[in-house]
Design a protein around this nucleic acid. Sequence first.
DNA 1: ATTTGGCGTGAACAATTTGTAAAGTCTGGA
DNA 2: TCCAGACTTTACAAATTGTTCACGCCAAAT
Lengths: 230, 230
Amino acid sequence: MAVSVLIVEDDRNIAELLQMYLEKEGYAVTVAADGAQGLSKFRAIKPDLVLLDVMMPVMDGWSVCKTIRAEAQTPIIMLTAKGETEDKVTGLKSGADDYITKPFEMKEVLARIEAVLRRSTGVTAEKKARRLVFDKLIIDMDAFELTVDGKKIDTPPKEMELLFYLASSPNRVYTRNQLLDEVWGFDYFGDSRTVDVHVKRLREKLEGVSENWSLKTVWGVGYKFEVTGG
Amino acid sequence: MAVSVLIVEDDRNIAELLQMYLEKEGYAVTVAADGAQGLSKFRAIKPDLVLLDVMMPVMDGWSVCKTIRAEAQTPIIMLTAKGETEDKVTGLKSGADDYITKPFEMKEVLARIEAVLRRSTGVTAEKKARRLVFDKLIIDMDAFELTVDGKKIDTPPKEMELLFYLASSPNRVYTRNQLLDEVWGFDYFGDSRTVDVHVKRLREKLEGVSENWSLKTVWGVGYKFEVTGG
DNA sequence: ATTTGGCGTGAACAATTTGTAAAGTCTGGA
DNA sequence: TCCAGACTTTACAAATTGTTCACGCCAAAT
């Protein structure tokens, strides 16, 4: 499957240039003309990487960057005008993975994209992403640690795995049976109410920490890890 | 190319039911009425997946399962009567990949088929669009969210499914009985006026939002989701 | 205009689903 | 073996949804 790149850039010339070049290199490219549109396209297509301009109408690059970071680990490369060096700090703080200054050469863009993808897929190709970061919440399956509001919370395996699974696809609903299949294993034949109990215990650990996400019940269907735009 | 499924089941009703549903989902279905026939058809068409009943004349499910396993890695899902929990162990030992207990819901069968295929090959039948977008209206069955005019509207399962079904084929009329079959399930025997009530509640949520679409009554026939050129 | 069957609506009732506490079971380590 | 923590099951109240029913109105046919 092709690697997909979302370009968020209001200057149509630059956007088209990038698109043309990247498509020639075999990337699947989507273009958004402002921050708001970028965010909505991001949610719709879940690209492998985002090229994000800083100066944009409607919603600037930093905001988009932070919002994306609150929902996903997708690598982000920021594009900014020359001379705004202080932006670099802001950008990296907002969660960007790399940083390119205009005017840039296409070769450089390509090189950086490949570097970032290598870095992130080097982790995700073999293993899946084993670490999820949301606002005030870190789910680290490598260290097997749950960090809530800066504090480590001792959490049993099943709860960790359940939360990790739900949070891996924010906003998506899973039925109890799906969760039993995926978290407990397809050969598990227990009562589906077991899920309820684990959700309850997770909620005790997570409640009141952030307005941006929560474990939500979808009545008559199941559960989801809901993330509201930050 | 279509994904092919072989159903080995001696109960003609169940077999036809499964066939109908799976074909509607885009699978190429072949049916065999007993174990021996199942095995010979398996060898002839080499399906991508096998649905295998346990209790059958001529050659029971376990034997067929073991024989298939000796020749191929094709995923196998066993079908068995309720309450025979020890069969679960036997089934998994015989090499089955999953296990469904009768009576089952079609949705669950589909979910399990897709789960097994995803595990083994990563290929499933074409997915339907699970998300419909109209002017000021988003029906998202993955997140199980109805968004009207930018606001999320809390909507019960039946209403969501009914709206989704109607909106999947805009301008097409469905009779109450068709809707009961498709949304409520073929085995539902309630009053068809139930549909009216759900339509009414949907209309309350949707009224006055857009000129471009509406839930319309087709007198003497049924309902449709009407979309006027946008 | 009248008639007839279909439809909209509100409310009562039934059924299902969920939150939660608590008890029971399992498991690995001391 | 015993213990402690983790997991599962059970039970029941509370919340939410699904269904039925009755009544009055409306569309279409005569």
